[in-house]
Amino acid sequence: MAQLNASLRPAPAPPPEPIPVTLNVNGVERTLHLAPWTTLLDALRLHLDLTGTKKGCDHGQCGACTVLVDGRRINACLTLAAMQDGRKVTTIEGLTTGDSLHPLQEAFIEHDAFQCGYCTPGQICSAAGLIAEGKATTDDEIRELMSGNLCRCGAYPNIVAAIRQAMAIAGPKAEGAP
């Protein structure tokens, strides 16, 4: 039935020309040629093989796709790669320095701040953004400003503890942070 219906439809318009998009991803300049509808999330996962950034809901509700663009946390699923042309993207793969984990990664391990781990890259990138923003000082403020990252395993108490620890290491808000 589906095939029959498909055969009755007019031929689809040819796809638009791919768009050249240059992203600085984790410090490396990458140029891709992408269909206009390629989200930043799909560009990272499908075209750059950076599968650390997760696709959860794909509708901006779960936060699993959180990455940093020019240092600010955003949902990679709700922006087109073409819209981010020329920008600096940091994913979970880019938070480490050589073999050293980021203080947030250390803290998440130390506090057992995950169970299945699917939300964790988004949680950690979001927390990195939160620390750079410098708006949260209490546990309640951490919870409120992390409310865009869901954890269906319910590791929230340990996530808050891990972020609090990393925040203490990062110290007060850095000069010029967004």
């Binding site: 901006g60 936060g63 959180t66 600010r72 946390r73 955003i74 949902n75 709700l78 922006t79 979001s126 953004g129 939160l130 923003e133 400003l145 992390m146 409310s147 865009g148 990252n149």
Partner: peptide, 9 residues
């Protein structure tokens, strides 16, 4: 409204 990520966008 929304989340920190969405408010940044």
């Amino acid at each position: 409204g929304a989340s920190a990520q969405l408010r940044n966008m």
